[in-house]
Nucleic acid binder design. Sequence first.
DNA 1: AGCACA
Length: 229
Amino acid sequence: MLTGDIPPNQTIYIKNLNEKVKKEELKRSLYALFSQYGRIMDVVALKTPKLRGQAWVVFMEVTAASNAVRQMQNFPFYDKPMRIQYAKTKSDCVAKEDGSYDKKKKLEEKAERKQRAEEAQQSSRANGATAENGGSAAPFRQGKPSVKETVAPNNILFIENLPYEATSMMLEMLFQQYPGFREVRMIEAKPGIAFVEFEDDQQSSMAMQALQGFKITPQNPMTITFAKK
DNA sequence: AGCACA
């Protein structure tokens, strides 16, 4: 198994990400793509030589992380299959919430890492380039509070939290700009939801990433998940 | 391949 014997963690570790994607865009897309599994506390991505092509997505619940690990395993994202595991350690933002965050310990760890890096540098007798990268607060958006059932990626999107005023025409305008768009389906008897069909699951996922949380009215950020087949 | 919090 890809996850090896790493115990479940509310944070998932993703590798084999496309390194050409800019950090902010990557974080936004990961946020949009994974928020269908539950509320996300933080997304961390660094572009340092050691950490490029990897990211951490911190969920509020472990169950959300578990579903994400299973369902999105190997899913093509910017043309590369994502490799997903549980993170090996607790994320800082989680430690801060549960009170176990220890600033002193954190600094020690940082110093140790630095030390290690310098040793490696010396022993190799080589001078390499150093890359540093800034980055700040993770995006926060409204999402579903509760745990979701697991749904594998597919070509049909399920849209929730639409305002009453929303029409299929409006949704069509919104979704038709993404390649592979087929149709919008709304059900008279069920206001507030819609189904949007694409040709394949990669195209539907691109639209999901682009429109996740989109507000038709200020009070209604739409929630997009893959439809149950 | 690579597990951090700039």
